[in-house]
């Protein structure tokens, strides 16, 4: 397995809404963040949940978001951040996007 994204890469979370078991929370879908760590290959939970092998394993990333980017009326500090672990099949390259 080679990870598609490097630490520091800008990535966007797919705005996808499949009906079954996934581990990508609703509140980050369609949002853009930065990879802060590559956690390694992990079996695909979307397969494991249905009794299958989970192969091929997927790279799992820590993705950091500005919390103020996640909520339109966030009233905390602009410094605040939210970090979520996201499997690679949910991420798109967002290096072209300006922030």
């Amino acid at each position: 397995m080679s990870a598609r994204f490097a630490v520091g890469a800008r990535v966007s979370v797919r705005a996808a809404f499949p009906p079954g078991h996934v581990r990508t929370p609703f509140f980050i879908r369609g949002k853009t963040g930065v990879v802060t760590a590559i956690l390694g290959p992990y079996h695909n939970p979307e397969e494991l949940a249905y009794g299958r092998s989970g192969e091929p394993a997927l790279p799992l990333y820590r993705v950091s978001f500005h919390t103020a980017d996640l909520w339109r009326d966030y009233d905390g500090s602009t410094k605040d951040s939210t970090v979520v672990d996201v499997y690679e099949n949910w991420l798109d390259d967002a290096s072209g996007e300006k922030n």
Partner: peptide, 12 residues
């Protein structure tokens, strides 16, 4: 026999 992922799916 089962995975924690199957546990979660069953709960959902």
């Amino acid at each position: 026999i089962m995975t924690v992922d199957e546990l979660r799916r069953g709960i959902e």
